[in-house]
């Protein structure tokens, strides 16, 4: 299922509802809204990437501008190779389900993910299996996050759509599910639909 090449990082902070992972590579972040998993095949926790940061390793020490004499941005990193070690990329994922090789449940797992658990970017086959049900949308739209939930839902659906051959049909089905969930809040529904409508 998951290849070592899909591995994007390691859990450095975990709670029932979310986990934070540090990337192995600077800027090796999974896209906003992508489905990631942590844990082994027997007990896997699924999350959706909702936030990412790249900053100095030491909180008190901010990076300084270095490119005055450089021609290109790449030049900065080449001439200061220590930067790769002084900066790090982190992302936060909202827990939307858990499962094993037999079944996937789209509700919160009994225990949070373990620290240092390897985080994998789910391959499209797994995304497809996961997105057969839209129950996770309810978890998404009911949380409060630093980013706008509508933005996150739209990003997630766009990401998941890429895994489906018939992206149009997938988005339509998701849209109808949202229309039911947001039946009494048309303005939120419209914000999401406007972001996932095919061009």
């Amino acid at each position: 299922m998951t290849e070592p090449s899909d591995r994007v990082g390691e859990v450095i902070e975990a709670s029932t509802t979310e986990f934070v992972a540090e990337c192995y590579e600077l800027y090796g972040l999974p896209p906003l809204g992508s489905l990631v998993s942590v844990g082994d095949a027997a007990d896997k926790t699924f999350g959706i990437v909702y936030h990412a940061t790249t900053a100095s390793v030491e909180p008190g020490r901010r990076p300084i501008a270095r490119g005055k004499d450089e021609v290109s941005e790449e030049g900065i990193y080449k001439s200061s190779p220590q930067l790769e070690k002084l900066l790090r990329s982190e992302f936060s994922a909202l827990v939307v389900g858990h499962g094993n090789s037999e079944a996937i449940h789209q509700f919160l797992p009994p225990k949070p993910a373990r620290i240092h658990g390897f985080v994998y970017l789910c391959p499209s086959e797994q995304v497809k299996t996961f997105s057969r049900s839209f129950d996770f949308l309810n978890l998404l739209i009911t949380t409060s996050l630093p980013v706008s939930v509508e933005e996150l839902v739209a990003a997630t659906l766009r990401q998941m759509g890429q895994a489906h051959e018939d992206k149009q049909a997938f988005l339509k089905a998701a849209g109808r599910e949202l229309a039911t969930l947001l039946s009494s809040d048309y303005s939120r529904l419209r914000a999401i639909l406007g972001r996932i409508a095919p061009e």
């Binding site: 149009q168 988005l171 339509k172 849209g175 109808r176 949202l178 229309a179 039911t180 039946s183 048309y186 529904l189 419209r190 639909l193 409508a197 095919p198």
Partner: peptide
């Protein structure tokens, strides 16, 4: 909603 958008009208029809 913008009813000329087929996506919107198909999503909303029968739900909202």
């Amino acid at each position: 909603p913008d009813v000329t958008d087929p996506f919107l009208s198909e999503v909303l029809n029968g739900t909202a």
